Simulated assay, not measured.
Amino acid sequence: MRQWIQQRLGDERGDVPGWVLITLMTAGLVIVIWGLAGPALSGVFDQAISRVLGGV
């Protein structure tokens, strides 16, 4: 049983190129979404802060 567990754990090297691709694609999506939504979110934040501080 112990040998079987060690053999199974030794075979679990993972799919490194797949994980790298997923990480790079996620980072790319975050950059694109941030670039598109950043100015709008900044405007919403500025408007909310001005209302909290008493401005219009």
Rank of each mutant, 00 (worst) to 15 (best):
I22K: 07
V32P: 00
G14N: 09
I33M: 10
Q6A: 14
W4I: 13
V52T: 09
G38H: 05
F45D: 11
T26I: 10
L9C: 08
V30H: 02
G54V: 10
T26Q: 04
W19F: 08
G38C: 10
M25D: 02
T23L: 15
L53V: 13
G43H: 03
Q6V: 06
A37M: 15
L41V: 10
W34D: 13
A40K: 05
W34S: 12
A48S: 10
R2P: 00
T26M: 13
V44Q: 07
M25L: 14
G35D: 02
D15I: 03
G38K: 01
W34H: 05
T23M: 15
R13C: 12
G43V: 02
L29Q: 07
Q6N: 14
Q3M: 05
D46A: 14
V56M: 04
V56P: 00
Q6I: 04
L9G: 05
Q3Y: 07
Q47E: 15
S50W: 01
E12G: 09
L53M: 13
V52R: 01
W34N: 11
G14Q: 08
E12A: 15
G55F: 12
A27L: 15
A37N: 03
V16S: 06
D11Q: 15
I49S: 01
V16I: 14
G43K: 07
V32G: 00
G14E: 09
P17S: 07
V56N: 09
A48F: 04
A37K: 05
G10I: 00
D15H: 10
G10W: 01
T23S: 15
V16Q: 11
W34K: 05
V56C: 02
G38A: 14
